[in-house]
Design a protein around this nucleic acid. Structure first.
Lengths: 219, 219
DNA sequence: TAAAAAAATGACTACATAGTCATTTTTAAC
DNA sequence: GTTAAAAATGACTATGTAGTCATTTTTTTA
């Protein structure tokens, strides 16, 4: 938990601090990310960081929570009852969720790293939490949908969860392959993530969901 | 490239060296992996490593190539014409490929890390090579299969490639979820990767391929 | 056995890191 | 304007790292 000193900072200062810290932790391993580099970029003394946070882990945990809270606010805003069927809802959620990535690319990168790439010993205990939570959420959801006859009978819930999550999370790779978009580069250069139009993105989402639907729906 | 001194080593010494080095690089980032720890485990002097290799990167590149060559030897041993259709062949290749993971778990982990988790600046130029090669290989293969009517028309080749690769590589996660297998732990403790039977594994593969087939095949 | 070549050694350099803390500067209170 | 609390500072410690190289040990050659 950050110390009071951190919360006493002006919003401007605090945001700047978070932004630069996110940059460092989004692009590097916990181990490789450097407090020294952060203070250099910020032009502040190293001691300041330790006026704000207990240690490196404390800062990392703050950034993780910060990003998660923003992400959750994006996900929970759509309601199932506003959509005629599961796949319409899923498509809408998917596209809506991508707004998080577009509007908070550093948070998105950090969570991606935490979910998939991180392997530093110091943060191991904190790695799988959000993925586990996502799985629990998906599991409940899919069990409810099963009663509505959304999915082919006989396909186990765990494999539906696995399948949907895996496919959903693979979209960035598909976009990189298809349109040669280098997200990390675009973000670090301050460029928009999608050049002129979001249509490429929408097409990729539709192509993926088309396959998911074929794989899972009742014939 | 390793120096001549390395190849002059007795097979026993060389294998031991490779084994311990693989362990270090399989479990840690390039940056985090430590030559100092390797020589401690081996009980040799640090200077020896630099009699064998130019530097840390040289050692890493050797281990990468070493693992890739073993993996390739597993993949290229099955022939398409021995199978009645694409999905039978794919299933066989898949199960056969898993033998690589079972018999060379450290190599498998290293390649997994290189393909998905690595982000150290020093090795960036060498990261995407094998995945790109896999994609080229898949692309050719799928284009040939398309002529045989294996896939639903209208599904673009690039999304089939993406879909098959993504699903195939997700199997370890499914197994971890389903049977709570901790591969890294089992490997580091020298335990077999699958307790008593490989049937769990085969079931998981079949479940995944079932979905892939539903998604892609002609109705 | 003696000389020459090859291999192993480990103290050492140069550098980077997280975290500390006595001191100074800034801000707030009166 | 004076005092007290809060915040910022940066030199410093302790620790880890990759890589070097003169020296010693082992192996090979003659």
């Amino acid at each position: 938990m950050p110390k009071e000193t951190f919360y006493n900072l002006s919003e401007e200062k605090r945001n700047r601090f978070v932004q630069i810290a996110l940059e460092e932790f989004a692009y590097r391993d916990f181990q490789a990310a450097s407090i020294t580099q952060i203070v250099k970029k910020l032009g502040i003394a190293k001691g300041s960081v330790y006026q704000y946070f207990d240690d490196k882990l404390d800062l990392w945990l703050y950034l993780k929570k910060y990003s998660e809270e923003i992400k959750i606010s994006y996900i929970t805003s759509l309601k199932r009852e506003d959509y005629p069927n599961f796949w319409e809802y899923y498509r809408a959620m998917y596209l809506h969720g991508i707004n998080f990535d577009l509007e908070h690319p550093l948070c998105s990168l950090l969570l991606y790293r935490i979910g998939f790439k991180e392997s530093s010993e110091q943060v191991k205990p904190y790695l799988h939490t959000w993925k586990e939570e996502a799985k629990i959420f998906f599991r409940q959801w899919i069990e409810a949908e099963k009663k509505l006859g959304t999915f082919e009978e006989g396909i186990a819930t765990d494999i539906i969860v696995h399948f949907l999550l895996t496919m959903s999370l693979s979209i960035t790779e598909l976009l990189q392959d298809r349109y040669h978009i280098d997200f990390e580069k675009n973000i670090s250069e301050g460029k928009p993530l999608f050049g002129k139009n979001k249509e490429e993105l929408i097409k990729a989402v539709n192509d993926l969901i088309f396959l998911m639907e074929r794989a899972l729906k009742i014939n």
